[in-house]
Amino acid sequence: MLNKLSNPELIKLILPLFIIQLGLTVFSIYRLSKDKVKYLPKWAWLLIIIFGEILGCIIFLTIGRERE
């Protein structure tokens, strides 16, 4: 089993996941730097984005930003 893990095939499968995760985090931090935020201060949202991983990013993007 372990030797299968180092298989380049598996890395290729994980790569899209990694890209989505990284891209979303970078995008969320970019929006955080530009937009006005709601409910929590910016530093708290930053923690949510970084440690909340994908779900944290989604919560920030859906309810954390001031739309108007």
């Binding site: 089993m1 372990l2 893990l5 598996l10 499968l13 994980i14 899209p16 996941l17 989505i20 979303l24 995008f27 994908i54 989604i58 993007l61 859906t62 739309r67």
Partner: peptide, 27 residues
């Protein structure tokens, strides 16, 4: 308003994430 982005991630992400996690779980 990035709704496409959020829906895409919310739906597609787990399609990839789940099988990989299941594969890695026994390890």
């Amino acid at each position: 308003q990035y709704k496409y982005l959020l829906l895409f991630i919310g739906i597609i992400l787990f399609a990839i994430l789940d099988p990989i996690l299941l594969k890695l779980l026994p390890e």
